[in-house]
Amino acid sequence: MLVHEVMTAPVVAVPRDWTVRQAIRLLYEMNITAAPVVDEEGRMVGIVSEMDLLRGQFEADPRAYLRLAAPPEAPPPAGVEEVMTPNVRTARETDDVLGLVEVMITTGVKSVPVVRDTTVVGIVSRRDLMGMLAHGDERIRDDVRAALRDLSAETAETRVTVHEGVVELRGDGDERTARIADVIAQTVPGVVRVVHYP
Rank of each mutant, 00 (worst) to 15 (best):
M1N: 06
H4R: 12
H4L: 05
V11P: 09
V12W: 15
A13P: 03
V14I: 15
V14H: 02
R16I: 14
D17Q: 08
Q22A: 13
Q22S: 04
A23E: 02
A23N: 03
A23H: 08
R25E: 15
L27S: 08
L27Y: 04
Y28M: 10
E29D: 11
E29R: 13
M30P: 02
N31V: 03
N31K: 11
I32G: 05
T33A: 12
T33M: 04
V38I: 10
D39M: 03
E41S: 09
V45Y: 04
V45W: 05
I47R: 06
E50W: 05
E50T: 06
E50Y: 02
M51Q: 15
D52Y: 07
D52F: 04
L53R: 12
L54G: 06
R55L: 12
G56V: 09
E59V: 08
D61V: 11
R63P: 04
R63Y: 02
A64R: 12
L66C: 01
R67Y: 12
L68S: 13
L68G: 12
A69P: 11
P71I: 08
P72A: 00
P75Q: 11
P77G: 09
A78R: 13
G79H: 13
E81F: 00
E81I: 00
E82V: 06
V83T: 08
N87T: 12
R89M: 12
R89P: 07
T94P: 01
T94G: 15
D95E: 07
D96I: 03
D96E: 09
D96Q: 05
L98A: 15
G99M: 02
L100F: 04
V101P: 01
V103Y: 05
M104V: 02
T106H: 14
V109Q: 05
V112R: 00
V115F: 00
R116K: 15
T119V: 15
V120A: 06
V121P: 07
G122M: 08
I123K: 03
V124L: 09
V124P: 09
S125G: 01
D128L: 03
D128R: 03
D128A: 03
L129K: 10
G131E: 04
M132Q: 14
M132D: 08
M132R: 14
M132I: 13
L133M: 11
H135L: 15
D137W: 03
E138T: 15
R139C: 09
D142K: 08
V144I: 01
R149C: 09
D150S: 14
L151D: 13
S152E: 15
S152Q: 10
A153S: 09
E154P: 06
E154L: 13
A156I: 05
E157V: 14
V160P: 03
V160M: 03
T161K: 12
H163G: 05
H163N: 11
E164F: 05
V167Y: 01
L169E: 07
D172W: 10
D174T: 11
D174G: 15
R176N: 14
R176V: 15
A178L: 13
R179K: 04
R179E: 06
I180R: 14
A181H: 09
A181V: 07
D182L: 08
D182A: 13
I184K: 00
I184L: 09
T187A: 05
V188W: 01
P189S: 01
P189E: 01
V195A: 07
V195R: 13
V195S: 04
H196W: 01
H196F: 04
Y197K: 14
P198W: 07
